[in-house]
């Protein structure tokens, strides 16, 4: 699907988004700079409409949570932000998925380059069956970032608050780590290539409460450097970690079931003074 770029200054066909890393290093004065800008985004799997008409902007260096009942398209929308759905048969997107003014689905945009800048951590920890060191060094190696690899691995592990626990056994298998450690390893693996954005797709749903807490603490540290989008089915988690929260729900109209964005606001506002009755029902536990 051919989409035009948002801004007039944006190049129409390019495989790179040149300002991504520089923009992070020089902090911009206005805090609400948008990283993602979605306009009327609808997502289809074959003929089935999965998500309908989402319009939202995701600001830089804050944590944005996406909540909602099962099947409302939370994961679908977040996987659309780094073109992770490309390999799903029949996947199609309409509307505009803007990233720093560049349409992610414009012709000529390289999904590999998109994923390199927009990292992702999945629901189940998925370390490679390799050593801890090789897990972190895997992406830098394939991207040719072999200079000072040891330092890069250490920094990633430190940033993911895992260094002290694993520094003495970097060469042992990552599969021997606990679930919570594995998930932090996956975060370390993602940040080892210095992306701008981290997409977290229910990162703590397979973890126990203690491990969940350590992941949430880690997110607070990481948001200084990264823009974070977290999908969660756990409302308390969204309330604890996120500045902004989007509530998605299933809308049954015209005989079709599709996920829609019901309400998007500051987390405090969404949970205490929701504007939409559907949001109120959900956050007060009357539904979902």
């Amino acid at each position: 699907m051919a989409l035009s770029p948002v801004g007039a200054e944006a190049p129409s066909r390019t495989t790179s988004v040149p300002f991504a890393i520089d923009a992070r290093q020089s902090m911009s004065p206005e805090p609400a700079e948008a990283v993602f800008d979605l306009r009327d985004v609808s997502i289809y799997y074959g003929d089935a409409l999965a998500v309908r008409g989402v319009t939202m902007t995701i600001p830089k260096n804050v944590i944005t949570a996406i909540i909602g009942p099962s099947g409302c398209g939370k994961s679908t929308i977040v996987r659309t932000l780094n073109r992770m759905n490309d390999s799903v048969p029949g996947f199609r997107v309409s509307g505009l998925v803007g990233y720093h003014g560049q349409s992610l689905y414009a012709g000529g945009v390289d999904p590999v380059e998109v994923r390199r800048r927009i990292g992702m951590v999945f629901q189940r920890p998925n370390p490679f069956p390799k050593s801890i060191y090789d897990n972190i060094a895997w992406a830098p190696r394939i991207l040719g970032l072999k200079h000072d690899l040891d330092e890069r691995v250490e920094k990633a592990l430190r940033d993911a608050a895992l260094w002290d626990e694993v520094k003495d056994r970097l060469r042992s298998s990552a599969l021997r780590l606990s679930g919570g450690q594995q998930q932090r390893l996956c975060i370390a693996r993602a940040i080892a290539i210095e992306p701008e954005v981290l997409l977290l797709d229910e990162p703590a749903s397979a973890l126990d409460p203690v491990a969940t807490m350590s992941i949430e603490d880690l997110m607070q540290d990481l948001k200084r450097t990264y823009t974070i989008v977290i999908v969660t089915h756990n409302m308390q988690q969204a309330a604890r970690v996120a500045e902004r929260t989007a509530f998605f729900s299933l809308d049954v109209s015209e005989g079709h079931r599709a996920g829609i964005l019901v309400e998007y606001a500051d987390t405090a506002t969404l949970f205490t003074r929701p504007a939409d009755p559907r949001t109120r029902d959900y956050v007060t536990g009357r539904f979902g």
Binding site: G119, F122, N126, F128
Partner: peptide, 8 residues
Amino acid sequence: EGALALGA
């Protein structure tokens, strides 16, 4: 997917 998400 983990590999693809790392820009492979």
